[in-house]
Every structure is written in C-alpha cells, then in structure tokens.
Design a protein around this nucleic acid. Structure first.
Length: 697
RNA sequence: GGCCCCAUCGUCUAGCCUGGUCCAGGACACCAGGUUCUCAUCCUGGUAACAGGGGUUCGAAUCCCCUUGGGGUCACCA
C-alpha cells in the first residue's frame, strides 16, 4: 500500500548535501544601493491558516529504520502505538468500516488525487514559557520558520514548522506566558504549522487561527507528555543505560562548590549509584503505592566513555573528548524530565529533522547525541547560530532590564538622602523584602525593574518582542533587522520582508560570529518602514497601536476613519520613527487649553527676544490673531495660505510667524507643521491658547 | 579554571568554501555641506576595517599553524 518511504536519515542527508550544492548565484544587486526585496512592501507573512488536517503520506518516525536489537518494547512502538520498523500510517487507519458500509458504484477509475508529499524537513521552535518572547528567541523562530518554508518550496512538500512549549520547569512556567509567546510570534508573522492552537485578530482585522497537528505528533506542551518520557526512562533504566541516583541536591552542591574552590572541574561520581544492583534500583525507585520504597531520586544517563563528534551545519565538525560529558540528569526528583531529555525524546517523536538554535546550546549537543545513541535514535541535523549581544559585548538578556533599573535606583539613593529602599518600596507598592533582594542582585524580577523604571523615569532597554511592540516598532522592521543578525542573503541586499526570507533562507549563509544588537540601525529600519507606509495603512495601524498602548490618545480619537485622525496621521507620519514617537508628537492635543505649560527657554528665545528687523515674537503673535480669526474653513491649506499672505505683507519668512505660534499652541518649539498644528487644535482652542500665552507667558 | 566556538570599518555585514577582477563593497552611526516654518525626513560628499606573527603560493582578506583577543558553557533552568 505504501511505497517504501526513504529513511529519515537518508533524506536528511540528501537535504544536508543540497545545502552545499546550492550556491547563490552572484547577486545582480552588487554595487547598487540597498534594494528592497519582497513580495509586497514590508508585508508580514500572515498566512496563518493551518495545514488542513488531511494528513500526508506515510512519514516514518526518525529512527524507525534503525535495527537496534537491544531496543525494548518501549522503543518498538511510536507515539501512535504503531509498531516501529514499518512505516506508520498518518492518520491512523480506522478500526473497521462503518456500519452499513456500501461500496460505491463503479464509476470508472477514480480521479487521481494529487498525493500530498510528506515534509522532508521538520523544524521546531521550543521556547520555555517563563515570560515574553526574547528577541533572540524571535530570531531563532524566524530562521526555523523560514527554513521550513524554503525547504518545503524546494522539495514541493508542505512546510512543517513545529511550535513546542517546554514547560518542564514547574516553578517558572505559566500558561499565560505560553499564550503571550504565541502572540509575540504571530504578531511578527511567524506562524507555526504544528503546535498549540492560537486565535487572534490580524493586523488587517482578519481572524487568524494558527496551529494544528496534521501529523499527529502532539501534544505540544511537554507537561502533557510525561507518560512518554517515563516510558523511555524505564527502558533506559532497565537496560542499565540510565540509573537512579539518590544523592541529595545539597550534597552535590557542596561537592561542586568544594571542587570549584580548589579550581578543579567538578565531575559527578557515579560509583555509589552504580554499585546498586538493578533489582534494588527498581525497587527503590518504585512508588510505595506499587509496592516499592518510593525513595526520592533523579535518573541519570550512564554516559559511555566515547568521544563525541557533532556535525554542525554552521560550525562544521565539533569534537568532545571522552569524559567531557557527565552522567547528567534525565528526570528530576519532581518526576519532570530535564530539558536535555525532553528535547531529545520530543525531537525524535515529532520527527524533527533540523535543529536550528543559538550557539549557547552548542555544549549541550554532545549530551543530546549521547542520549540519542543510548536510545538508538538518529541525530537530527544541527545548525548553531551566533549569539545576539548588547553593544558592550555581553549576552543580550532579560537581566539587562534589571541591571538598568538597579543602577538607576542606586544612583538615586546615593544622590538623594531622602530616597531610601524603604521609601521606594512604599511609593511603588513593592514588597520591601523583594526590593531589597533585587537591589542586592539576588533576583532580576522584571516587574520590579519596570516599577523602578517608572519611578525614576528611566527607559529600560527593550529585550522582549513585546517591549518593541509597545515602543511602537513594526513587526516587519523587526524581522528584517533580526534576520540580518547572523544571516545575510548575500550581496548588498538588506531590506526585505519575511516572504523573501522564507524564499531565500539557507543554513549555509548563517555566520559564525556573534552579532551586536545595534538599536540605532533597528530604529533606522523602523523609520524607513513607517514613513514609506501607505497613508491609509498608517492610519489603521497607528490607531490599532494607540488602542493597545496609548489609550488616552485613542480616547480622544476613537474613530480611525474620522477626518481629524487622518489629518493627525498626515501631520505625524513623515516625521516619526516609531508609533510611540508619533504618539509623543500629539501630546499637545491631550492637554486642556488652560493647562499648556510654556517652556521658559522657548518663551525667552521666540517670544520675548527682540529681533531688530522684525520686532518681538509676541508682537507678531498678537498680530496673527486676527488672521487666524479670519480663516473661514479651518483646514491646513487655508490656514497656510492665510499665514503666508500675512507673512508676505510683513515681508517675512513664514518661520518667523510659525515659531511664536508653536510656542503659544504647544508650549514648545517643536510640533508638526504649523498649519496642521492649528487645524488639529481647531480655531477655538488655537485662539484660546494664543490669548492665554499672550497674557501669561 | 576545564571544555567549546569565534575573529573584515564604531556596529550589522558582502567578499572567504572555489587564492588574482579588493590599495576591500553596502547599510547604520559619525563628520561636513545642501533642502526645509520647528522637529524629523530627504539629497550630496567624507572619515573608517582584513587582530598580530609565521608559513604555503608567482600571488593571501581568502588555505594552514601559532599567539593574542572576544564570547559561550560547565544545575534536579531551559
């Protein structure tokens, strides 16, 4: 019924080879200025429609072709309960024909159904739901997503990018964080073919449903896969490839500290654990309810003394001498698998063929390879990409927020004796003990950092996708920018959208050197994207952003289709770098006419100072009142014409009038074009502010 | 400290695999001009790099070795 499907490892190797044979043709864009490339103008890919759950042709689980005679029954069946060694069927076949099944009449040969080919390349992104998505994680996800698409297109198969939630750390994981991560990814336009279901409203108001399980490899939360891990754990223990260890965590900590203090490398000593006979191991492990002793324990892999070589698609061959890998923990005392164990089991059972991850994982790879060998799994193809750093060279991390906030608080405390940790706690409502801990660097709570940031008016560095979103960055600018961190399409091309990345992404163009996150360049990309956006799109997206992140502004302009909102957008779009920046420029619209504070410096320079040729700004301002009163239809064009005519009569440059007006209307010397500023305020407000300025300033 | 990885302008990078077309190209930042009612854009021009030392070769940014420098990692976190 099935043609013999090529083994996973064969196809994977073929895919790997095609990396090398696929050289990019010389770019036609060399020696031209940077060119934007993409299927649309900076349009994030939003095809969130999940693969129809129709299923593909047979897809053997990785390792299914392996003939490991030692494999116990646990390893002889895949996650569907189907025997290994024969290609499993997706979806599983029906048990029997439905009752009353009547064969259809013979209508001649069935029309040939184009058979959907199974994916040859399966990538995954596996975040731990402990907060919002880190920008580095976003890059990893982007590359995995792009690679799945590029390979699917090359091979004519459906794309297979899996999102898996690694929630095995019970203390730190949360469901809301998992949801947040899904949203962060979706917002960036990174959609997963397989993984948790996520519903959202897209940028254009469209309803998106992301996720699914067409290959039946879920669930995608590791906490829901414990039975699977335990099955493999027991297999390994029974084969004596893994063993229970009964040492207390504190004992080992002490030994570790002692070793480091002697400047020696700590190695786990397995002699005591290995001295226990298998029967006794099993008895001590077994829960009391099942007649065992139920002793608290962890399960460790018995690492054989073989050297391990990792074949990496970016770094090449990386070798580890025998003895470099310790007998590491597979299952924690709480019964949850460690990251190392869960990742190996899941990648195998989910059929993941290519693992793209950051270089900080490189030293984990020999552990994973050792485990794969013990389990008789084939190793996926690895590609480790460079780390993303701060401009100072340190690894970009969520802790950077804590660092910044802590520094701000400490300088404030030093400078001003009235400011004490106790006083800060009272003002901010923070728990004094937690705050003290935070200041003593015992915790890096993001909540505390943010509270301190607000208290001391310092902007914390954006490190999570949500931070950039709140700061008014565009997803298309972010994906474009982070794609360039460690990858490049070659030549002088550097402006492109996600569709372009999905088309051109190639593991062999991933660099080896760590990349510094240059916020200035990101800002430049964002400015470019925002100022070249179609005005109608800007109106809509800026309004959407304001609803989410600038409620006071959205409250004043509830309707994104209203002419006054359009007028505001027209005034602000060409001169903003982010949505936040745009919102800041509209601040003058949000204060009451009698609450405008006039910047003393501006008043001095623009209103009071007497120019020998033109007199004082205040005088000009008084003179322009009647001009403004005289404008019948109060809109930018007519206002501009009136002011220009007034300026002409005085033989003045329009700027001589604009600046005093600006100060009167907004209190400062900076605002959108003066005609737009007046029009947005309206005639009554404008005149009220001018009169108040003439009287009080 | 052990182990692992890396090395082109201040930053992201192209070029490296397949040595000559490179006294090294683009972009961001910076500097100098220009446009402009402020601000921001925008336009023009400019400064700026193959870490150092050995090899191999007629020829090295490109291949090899060493040194130096940077980073990562050493958990019952992921």
């Amino acid at each position: 019924m099935h043609s013999p499907a090529p083994s996973r490892s064969t196809s994977a190797i073929a895919a790997a080879k095609s990396f090398t044979s696929r050289r990019l043709s010389r770019s036609p864009f060399t020696r031209t200025s940077a060119t934007f490339l993409g299927s649309g103008r900076f349009r994030p890919e939003s095809s969130g429609t999940p693969q129809s759950a129709g299923g593909w042709a047979a897809m053997p689980a990785r390792g299914a072709n392996q003939t490991d005679a030692a494999a116990s029954t646990a390893a002889t069946h895949n996650t569907l309960g189907q025997p290994r060694g024969t290609p499993p069927v997706y979806p599983p076949p029906r048990e029997s024909k439905p009752e009353g099944f009547v064969p259809p009449p013979n209508l001649g040969p069935m029309p040939t159904q184009p058979e959907l080919k199974r994916p040859q390349v399966v990538t995954r992104f596996a975040p731990s739901p402990t907060g919002h998505l880190h920008i580095g994680g976003a890059r990893t996800a982007l590359f995995c997503w792009a690679y799945s698409r590029a390979e699917a297109a090359r091979q004519g198969t459906p794309p297979a990018f899996v999102l898996r939630i690694e929630d095995t750390d019970q203390a730190r994981s949360s469901e809301s964080a998992a949801k947040g991560m899904c949203e962060d990814l979706a917002w960036l336009g990174i959609t997963w073919d397989e993984g948790p279901r996520h519903e959202r409203t897209g940028d254009a108001g469209d309803h998106q449903v992301i996720g699914g399980d067409p290959r039946h490899v879920g669930p995608f939360f590791q906490a829901q896969r414990l039975h699977l891990y335990n099955k493999y754990i027991m297999q390994l223990v029974e084969q004596e490839k893994a063993f229970p260890a009964f040492e207390k965590a504190e004992e080992l900590d002490a030994k570790r500290r002692e070793a480091t203090s002697r400047k020696q490398t700590y190695h786990y000593d397995n002699t005591a654990a290995l001295a226990i006979p298998l029967v006794e191991r099993l008895h001590r492990m077994k829960p009391v309810s099942e007649g065992g002793k139920g002793e608290p324990h962890v399960v460790r892999l018995r690492v054989t003394g073989e050297p391990i070589t990792v074949q990496d698609q970016v770094l090449g061959e990386v070798s580890y001498a025998a003895g470099e890998v310790d007998d590491f923990v597979l299952r924690k005392a709480d019964g949850f698998p460690t990251y190392h164990f869960a990742v190996v089991i899941d990648d195998e059972t989910m059929g993941v063929t290519h693992v793209l991850r950051a270089q900080e994982h490189l030293n984990n790879t020999p552990k994973h390879v050792a485990l794969q060998q013990a389990l008789g799994f084939a190793s996926p193809i690895y590609a480790h990409m460079p780390i993303i750093c701060n401009m100072d060279g340190s690894k970009m991390s969520k802790r950077d927020k804590a660092k910044t906030a802590r520094a701000a608080a400490k300088t404030a405390i030093q400078k001003d004796p009235a400011i004490s940790p106790g006083a800060i706690a009272q003002e901010t409502g923070l728990d004094p003990a937690a705050l003290a801990d935070f200041l003593a660097q015992n915790n890096d709570s993001i909540e505390i950092a943010e509270a301190l940031g607000r208290r001391f008016g310092v902007t914390l560095p954006e490190v999570e996708v949500e931070d950039f979103r709140a700061a008014g960055y565009l997803p298309e600018a972010i994906t474009n920018f982070i794609a360039l961190l460690g990858w490049s399409p070659g030549g002088d091309i550097e402006k492109f959208d996600t569709a372009f990345i999905a088309e051109r992404f190639d593991v062999h163009r991933i660099g080896k050197t760590s990349a510094k996150f240059d916020r200035m360049k990101l800002l430049s990309f964002n400015t470019d994207a925002i100022t070249t956006m179609a005005p109608a799109e800007f109106n809509r997206r800026f309004h959407q952003w304001a609803r989410d992140y600038a409620p006071p502004l959205a409250a004043v302009f509830p309707d994104s289709a209203a002419p006054r909102w359009e007028m505001l957008c027209r005034a602000v779009q060409p001169r903003c770098k982010t949505f936040k920046d745009a919102a800041d420029q509209t601040a003058f619209l949000l204060v009451a006419d009698d609450q405008v504070t006039f910047d003393p410096k501006a008043v001095e320079k623009v209103l009071k100072k007497i120019d020998p040729a033109t007199g004082s700004g205040a005088a000009l301002l008084a003179g322009v009142v009647s001009v403004i009163e005289g404008v019948v239809e109060f809109k930018p064009e007519t206002i501009h014409a009136a002011i220009e005519a007034f300026a002409a009569t005085k033989n003045l440059n329009i700027g001589k009038i604009a600046q005093p007006l600006r100060v009167a209307l907004t209190g400062s010397t900076v605002s959108p074009p003066i005609d737009a500023t007046l029009a947005l305020l309206g005639k009554a407000s404008s005149l009220a502010r001018i009169h108040r300025c003439l009287q009080t300033a």
